[in-house]
Design a protein around this nucleic acid. Sequence first.
DNA 1: TTGTAAGCGTTATCAG
DNA 2: CTGATAACGCTTACAA
Lengths: 325, 325
Amino acid sequence: MTPKLEDVAKLAAVSKTTVSRVLNNRGYLSQKTIDKVHAAMAQLDYHPNVVARQLYKNQTNLIGILLPSVANPFFGELTDTLERLLYQAGYKVLIGNSMNDPQKEAAYLNQLLSRQVDGLIVGTHNQHIQAYQNPGLPVVAIDRVMNEDIPVIASDNYQGGQLATTHLIDRGAKKIIHTNGPEDLKTPAQRRRSAYETTMVAHGLTPITYTVDFNIAPSAKKAVFRQIFQEHPDVEAVFAANDVDAALIQQVAGEFGRQVPQDLMIVGYDGTNLMREVLPNLTTIVQPIEAMSKMALQVLTQRINKEPTEKEYILPVKLWPGQTG
Amino acid sequence: MTPKLEDVAKLAAVSKTTVSRVLNNRGYLSQKTIDKVHAAMAQLDYHPNVVARQLYKNQTNLIGILLPSVANPFFGELTDTLERLLYQAGYKVLIGNSMNDPQKEAAYLNQLLSRQVDGLIVGTHNQHIQAYQNPGLPVVAIDRVMNEDIPVIASDNYQGGQLATTHLIDRGAKKIIHTNGPEDLKTPAQRRRSAYETTMVAHGLTPITYTVDFNIAPSAKKAVFRQIFQEHPDVEAVFAANDVDAALIQQVAGEFGRQVPQDLMIVGYDGTNLMREVLPNLTTIVQPIEAMSKMALQVLTQRINKEPTEKEYILPVKLWPGQTG
DNA sequence: TTGTAAGCGTTATCAG
DNA sequence: CTGATAACGCTTACAA
């Protein structure tokens, strides 16, 4: 059996209270007692039972992070950053990779609702899950609108769409195609589409948006991208939904004998450190992952402390000028 | 206040025991009682307190995953896969990204030791932390030797080193340089170096290994890679420690006016789905992430159930033939 | 088929 | 400066 506080107390010939005091540096204690207790703890290799403490305090110091998949570079870097900041703030991280499976997400949510975590950061795609309606749990959303009560932290997707589109127009492109997720997903990312379309029209150009499901396999994505070249052989530039898609589009362009950027310009989205290392030439819009993470933590903390928050926090993006557009 | 079991009991006019029975489908209950209790739970929007249950059962259904960083494609995909499998097995996942910081890792470990998790999967680089010596907690290691008592799940690094080296030799390279982590790290990955060196010698060639610290920034890595070309202008091929490094080496090769594969062949390592999507041309050794994850779960489960395990589980790798080597 | 009561390992109140 | 004891919310013998 693993030793418990009582065992330490017995061995040190003091009460449980005293041991607890030593453990938490609380109240007045003689140095002698402190030493005695420490010795007993060392001898037994005692580790306090975190769960018992959690029960009493009604607090777990755990934060849940619900995202589609940590294997995706954007969500991977986001999780990594959040974990670092949360750790500094005294929290540990419980992850749930929903893979955009509404069932799995709902299951996670229901379990986390049970005072398993002190707060929740969500960035999943299924925002219509019942449990979000009244979570009785501090929640913040990243880049997703869940419901009116949940504050959203997002980068400035409108600005990103504008930056990308004007950049391509400035570089001489007229026939520019945009790829994005399904329109019915009411995500802030749809503002990119809006910015793209507005910017195109403002320049007297015709916007064309291809819908690419976030979930589907790369081969299926490539099939969609091939359609672009088949249906619009005169396409001059593509503004992609993310950097991985941008890479796939560049590959497909190659199949059609197009050199980038001579025969086709490409601008990606996300600009994670990893993708900028691996594909430094890719022109892309960089999301401020660090700033978003800090803001998420700050707003979540406010929620936990029952302080008021804004509904939305929008952080600026920037263009990473590569060689592809 | 969030409602507790007792509130449900009161509202349904039954005892706590009965509510608990309904909650867990245990024992004999009249349908009438069941319905009554369910109605009360619904009315109160009751969610059982997981922590209280954990305390009683002395079991959290949480598994800790300690890895350097989930932002790295290999560890990201590994975490993603493990999370999926663990979820199916009824576990949730607590992550700790040590960033190879021994202090942070030790802190995590100490906290997780406190019955915060039912088991631990580690793949960090600092294997000399005290707490691993006697963890009193089921632990398995991935690709790292922690101590004699902790089973290791790894891919066949020797085979990987052999595959890569013979592949390059078969393709006509003679001056082949290998990059790897610091030799003092007693990781299974060092077997690649061993395989590389043995294979080179067996073919009458001279092995040259450059040490590249896993931790350092990409710019620092590139500096090391530049040295390779400066000190060995006649290098014909590089067998890199991982795919990201392989990408960096290809970039540096470009700086030196070398075309890949004509003027330089490159073979990477890891072969994650992401990297194969983004850089499909990169020849690489594919680690069996799914198989390793399954094995890790299986062995961890055995440990949890106090069944005997082997010391080491080695899984085969395969070569992904790209265009770079 | 249902209820009573003890216990999981802490912390905190209150008394000494 | 230290110690009894109740409480955190649940589960499970044991009783009825």
